[in-house]
């Protein structure tokens, strides 16, 4: 069953700047789809449209069989419960003036009627919940009281992941989640995402310019260039069949 269907999506910023051109793809429940492309290919625009931060001119987005209209508050509330996003810059995605536990609990506070499954017993204090969340992403619970400035880049991104999965979304959009991290930490974060996906049965849309990161995590990959999809394939077919020249160029650049 398709969890997300994007049909003919177009987004125009100005007369001369079309970020997305009639983009169509679908996402199956439980799979992880990679979106690759260079800077300016429309990857981030796609992420921001899908999370409801930006509007679009043409096309339709269907999530779990119901259409998503941007900028309407009531449907967005239910949608955002199920779709969460991890941002590119781990550091600036956390408010420097708030302790980690407050940042972590912001989504859950907005959905007070929802009790995630990792909260096994009633009557946990806010900080207990935050510490449990930190445990889910492999962080020490004593980080809860710290401020973002006191954490490393990898730890910050783990906090961001913990916040995103706190609502137990069915779809997780990752917009270059490893771009601001060094290589060893990148691998740790990707491994964590892979584990969480299996544990919580999350569908992942993984956006990156780094085709190596995408091949590590995703079974299916689409390639964007200047807002259009130029190629799509299963990971197993990456080397088998003849690929689009642009995909080849990306692969060569990553020396795979």
């Amino acid at each position: 069953m398709s969890i997300l269907v994007v049909d003919n999506l177009s987004k125009q910023y100005s007369k001369n700047l079309q970020a997305l051109k009639q983009l169509s793809f679908s996402l199956e429940q439980g799979e992880s789809l990679g979106v690759v492309g260079e800077s300016g290919s429309g990857k981030s625009t796609l992420a921001r449209i899908l999370i409801g931060l930006e509007s679009y001119q043409e096309g339709a987005i269907t999530f779990q069989e119901s259409p998503i209209a941007p900028k309407k508050r009531a449907p967005l509330r239910a949608y955002r419960k199920n779709v969460q996003m991890i941002f590119q810059d781990a550091a600036s995605a956390l408010n420097p003036k708030l302790p980690i536990w407050k940042s972590l609990l912001e989504p859950l506070k907005n959905y007070s009627e929802f009790t995630p499954s990792f909260i096994e017993v009633d009557g946990l204090s806010d900080k207990d919940i935050a510490e449990k969340l930190l445990g889910l992403v492999g962080l020490d619970s004593n980080l809860a009281d710290r401020y973002p400035g006191e954490l490393s880049g990898g730890q910050k991104q783990r906090v961001n992941i913990a916040r995103a999965i706190s609502l137990e979304p069915s779809l997780l959009i990752c917009d270059e989640p490893t771009a601001s991290l060094d290589v060893t930490v990148q691998v740790q974060i990707l491994t964590l995402l892979k584990e969480l996906q299996q544990q919580l049965n999350i569908t992942i849309l993984f956006i990156s310019h780094d085709i190596r990161a995408v091949t590590f995590l995703c079974e299916r990959i689409i390639v964007l260039k200047e807002g259009s999809m130029v190629d799509q394939f299963e990971l197993d077919d990456l080397y088998k069949s003849r690929r689009n020249s642009y995909t080849k160029a990306l692969l060569d650049a990553a020396s795979l």
Binding site: I51, G52, L53, L76, R77, R80, K81, Q84, M85, F87, Q88, D89, S92, A93, L94, N95, K97, L98, S103, E106, P107, N110, Y111, N160, R163
Partner: peptide, 26 residues
Amino acid sequence: QKEYVLVSQTANSSSLKTIRMHILPQ
């Protein structure tokens, strides 16, 4: 424009809450 304000929006915080929690303190 800061990403944590966008994150707050994707967490479905109301405008009032986002302003109070993330913008006013700055």
